[in-house]
Design a protein around this nucleic acid. Structure first.
Lengths: 189, 189
DNA sequence: GTCTATAGCGGGATAGAC
DNA sequence: GTCTATCCCGCTATAGAC
C-alpha cells in the first residue's frame, strides 16, 4: 500500500466532511483523526484550508467533465437529464450529505476567495450543461417549451439543491426523489 | 429610548447574522460590536448561543403564525400563495440574506439540539400551511391536480430555498423571481 | 443590566527534527 | 512525508465588581 495516495485520501475526506458538516465546521483535526496522521502533515499536501477547499471543487469539476464525456453519444436529452438527476441521488441515499453547491452557497458570505471562485465556476458549468440539454430536448420534441431554458435550468438547480437539504433535515431520502419526479413532469412532454 | 429593548435588538441582529453568515460562523462578538455592548452582556439576555438560535426560530414561528392570522379571510388560495412567495422575496432583495431554513438545513449536522427542534418545527408548520392552501386551491378549481399536495409542498419549499441561495451566490435577486414564476406556473391552472 | 477579566478550548498555521 | 512542539487567534462561557 503506497503512501502517495495520502493526498488523495485527504481530498476525498475533505469533500465528505464538507458535505456532512460544512466548510466552516470541519477542521484539519477531523481529517487527521480519520487518517491517523497529524494535523501538520495535511499542510504539507494542502498549504491552507482555502487551497484544500478549492481543490475539492476543482476535483468535482473534473469529475463532472469526465462524466459528461463518458456519456454515450446516442443518449437522448431525456435520458441525459435522468442520469444527471440520478447522480445527485447518491447524496440523498447516504442521508448525511448534501450537494457541494448546496453547502457552499449557504456558507457563501464566509468563504475565502479561491473557494468562491471555484464554486461559482462549477455552478456555471453545470448550468450550461443543463441549458444545452434542455435546448436539445426542445429541439428533438421530447421537452415542453415555455420559459427560457436558462431560467428553467436555474429552477432545476434550485429545486434539487433545496431538496437534498430538506431530505436530510427530515431524514427522508425519498423527498429528493419526489422532487425529481416533479422536475421531470415539468420538463418533459 | 429605553434600554429594555436590548434583548429584542440582540434577537433581531442574531437573525440577520444567521441569514448572512450562518449559525456557526457568527459570534457574540459580531453582535456586541454592532450594539456597542460587551459580549458578556449578551449572556445575560440569552444564556447560551444555543438558546439564542432557538429563540430566533421561535420568533420566526410566531411571526409566521401572526402573518397567517392577519390574512384577509376573503383571499383566494392563489392570492395566498402569491403573498407567501412574495414574503420570501424580501431576502433576495436584500441580496446578502437567505431564508432561515436554508441556512439551518445546510448546517444541520452541526446544530445543537434545541435549534434543530425549532427548525424542524418551523419547517413543518410552513409545510402544513402550504398543504392546506394547495388543497383549498384544488378544491376551488384554481390549482391543477396531479402529484399529492404533500409532495408538491416539499417541491415548493425546496425550490424557493435553493433559489434564494443561488440568487445570492450569483448576485442576481431576479433569479428568485424567475423561480417563483415557474412555481406558480406549475401550481396554477 | 452592563462592565472587566479570564478561563478553557479548538481553530489554522509554522518551525524544525527525523 | 511525517512527526512534535508551539504560536496566535477567536470562540463560548463564567465570575464577580459596579
Amino acid at each position: 500500500m503506497e503512501k502517495t495516495d495520502t493526498k488523495q485520501n485527504i481530498l476525498t475526506l475533505a469533500q465528505e466532511f464538507i458535505q456532512v458538516r460544512g466548510y466552516n465546521a470541519f477542521s484539519y483535526q477531523d481529517i487527521s483523526d480519520r487518517l491517523k496522521i497529524q494535523k501538520a502533515s495535511i499542510h504539507h499536501h494542502y498549504h491552507s484550508k482555502e487551497d484544500l477547499g478549492a481543490e475539492v471543487m476543482e476535483a468535482a469539476r473534473v469529475r463532472f467533465m469526465d462524466w459528461n464525456a463518458s456519456l454515450d453519444a446516442s443518449l437522448t436529452p431525456s435520458q441525459r437529464l435522468d442520469l444527471f438527476l440520478e447522480s445527485l441521488n447518491a447524496w440523498a441515499k447516504q442521508k448525511d450529505r448534501i450537494c457541494l453547491t448546496g453547502i457552499f452557497s449557504a456558507e457563501w458570505n464566509t468563504l475565502p476567495p479561491k473557494v468562491k471562485k471555484k464554486v461559482d465556476e462549477f455552478q456555471m458549468i453545470r448550468r450550461q450543461w443543463l441549458v444545452k440539454t434542455l435546448e436539445a430536448g426542445r429541439k428533438s420534441g421530447e421537452f415542453k417549451g415555455g420559459k427560457p431554458v436558462e431560467e428553467q435550468a436555474i429552477f432545476i438547480q434550485s429545486a434539487i439543491q433545496g431538496a437534498l437539504q430538506i431530505a436530510r433535515l427530515q431524514e427522508k431520502p425519498s423527498h429528493y426523489l419526489a422532487v425529481v419526479e416533479q422536475v421531470k413532469e415539468m420538463v418533459k412532454k
